[in-house]
Design a protein around this nucleic acid. Structure first.
Length: 485
RNA sequence: GGCUCGUUGGUGAAGCGGCUUAACACAGCGCCCUUUCACGGCGUCAUUCACGGGUUCGAAUCCCGUACGAGUCACCA
């Protein structure tokens, strides 16, 4: 058996949507599972949709996700060029050959005429099937007209009888009657091929063994097979994957404002977590493992375990998984990833590593950091009700008392370290014969004026430093006195 | 409308004729741990697999039909 080769063939439209990325992942995994090659091919045959810089985005995403390709535009192999617009002469040559083989014909009908017929049929509520009058033109006449400079397209010729069938790795045996297949344009009048044609030509010449694509191609696959057969080429293994949905009836798409890969990164999700999550959108392993490195996925992934039905993208589960990835980072790695957010949200000079240690298990996305640390530069506005806590048995009154105890001890601290502060609070509780919470809870609130903080009283006091801690305790005492007066 | 595909809990899903009075995970809910929150731990959450028939001793699993949903029918991919 020949070496497995798959390809990721995006058209450069400016962003990487999740469904697309998942297809790339599956293609990568199918190839790597068998030690095969993963190829990147740019499908830029639609000049009107061309977006500047879009190819760079594709490179960037593949780089960030670690989906390394063996051949591509910037990594030449034996089957280049890897950008379709650079392969034009080849398509022309094969189109002419396909005409000779009887798999296609030249067509001189204008787009407008066909559209008119289509509209007419729609008005009458009839199904439209284009019956190309150009079938009647002989090859010789057609070529003479072309030589004369007449505009033309090459259109696929489809037999009006018989059926075409194929076996898909995911969907199984599929059979379609030729008579319902449309005769699509293969080579446009601008000399560019359509997807329907370029795909077949390139997949064959790039020795692609497994064609992985969205299941919207399921019903047109027979048309491609007709082309393969006309040339006498081997038909690749097909792996059609179900769509990734936003909800039961809508596909995930940028047009609906749904998140793209880049959007998710910007929202503080890690590339590894995103990749891991989308692997599970339509595929499942044999056991119950859910967290996988790319390497592990390479080992475990098989097309047979791809699900047939659409998968709904669940941001909740991604968020959970992202939290898992964040917690699995070493503190150093986390600190590094958190730094841009720290510098954005914190002006005060603090011990970043210490902050990272206390915050790492408390955020699920990097962006969560912003909200978590927003009290460090300046405490939130005073709110007496925060001191009322049933479980901690605190009230504004007894909190005021506790804060006075704390202030006294903290001011007296010679050394100001986590250990010392920890002892201060613990000893205080023992000395005053109250539960820890009676003194630590008010202190935490006094230092932040937030109900939730990353870390408890001790951690926050360490982060803030002695001077600021004392200042905030004093302020809180003053605020409480005023509120209770 | 024709054709193709799909339908297991709020979500991702396992299940491939008896081991299933349907795994696992997320979310939810409750409890424990705890100086808050989180982490972690524990428990709970589908008498039922869209619906209706059929085959079978036995069906979520096989067959037929219905409903619903999606895709496709471009000189877009």
């Amino acid at each position: 058996m020949s070496k497995v080769r798959t390809r990721f063939a995006p058209s450069p439209t400016g962003y990487m949507h999740i469904g697309n990325l998942r297809t790339a992942l599956y293609e990568y995994l199918i190839a790597k599972h068998d030690g095969g090659d993963f190829i990147l091919r740019i499908e830029d045959t639609d000049q009107e949709r061309e977006v500047e810089g879009a190819v760079d985005i594709i490179y960037d995403v593949l780089e960030k996700t670690g989906l390394k390709y063996d051949e591509g535009p910037d990594k030449p192999g034996d089957c280049g060029p890897y950008i379709q617009s650079e392969r034009l002469p080849m398509y022309k040559k094969y189109a002419d050959e396909l005409v000779d083989l009887g798999g296609a014909h030249y067509c001189f009908c204008s787009e407008e005429d066909i559209q008119k017929q289509r509209d007419l049929a729609a008005e009458h509520g009839e199904a439209f099937k284009f019956m190309d009058p150009c079938h009647a033109i002989s090859k010789e006449d057609a070529r003479a007209r072309i030589a004369n400079g007449e505009k033309y397209v090459v259109r696929q010729t489809i037999p009006s009888y018989g059926t075409t069938s194929f076996d898909d790795e995911v969907y199984g045996h599929i059979e379609v009657e030729n008579s319902i297949l449309d005769e699509n344009v293969l080579l446009k009048s601008d000399g560019y091929p359509t997807y329907n044609f370029a795909n077949v030509i390139d997949d064959h010449h790039m020795h692609i063994t497994h064609v992985v694509r969205g299941n919207e191609y399921l019903s047109s696959t027979p048309k491609y097979n007709l082309i393969y057969n006309a040339y006498g080429w081997e038909i690749p293994t097909y792996v059609h994957v179900p769509p990734v949905m936003k909800d039961e009836q809508h596909k995930l798409s940028k047009r609906n404002g749904d998140a793209s890969f880049q959007d998710l990164l910007a929202k503080g999700y890690l590339a590894e977590a995103i990749l891991n999550y989308i692997a599970l959108l339509g595929w499942s392993p044999e056991d119950e493992q859910e967290i996988f490195t790319l390497k592990e996925l390479e080992e475990r992934f098989t097309a047979e375990r791809i699900n047939k039905s659409p998968a709904i993208f669940d941001i909740n589960k991604l968020t959970w998984m992202n939290g898992m990835y964040i917690r699995n980072l070493s503190v150093e790695e986390f600190n590094k990833k958190a730094m841009p957010y720290y510098t954005q949200a914190i002006k005060r000079d603090i011990d970043h590593m210490y902050l990272s240690k206390t915050i790492q298990a408390r955020v699920e996305t990097l962006v969560d950091i912003l909200e978590a640390v927003d009290f460090l530069d300046e405490a939130h506005a005073f709110d007496a009700s925060l001191y009322q806590n049933k479980k901690m048995k605190t009230t504004p009154e007894n909190s005021l008392e506790a804060l006075r105890w704390v202030l006294e001890k903290v001011e007296a601290c010679e050394e100001y370290t986590e250990e010392v502060l920890h002892d201060v609070f613990m000893n205080l509780a023992v000395e005053k014969e109250v539960k820890n919470g009676r003194v630590m809870y008010p202190a935490r609130v006094a230092l932040s004026n937030k109900a939730r903080t990353p870390g408890g009283a001790v951690e926050i006091a360490v982060l803030l430093g002695k001077e600021e801690t004392v200042a905030r305790l004093k302020q809180a005492i003053a605020d409480l006195e005023a509120a209770l007066a």
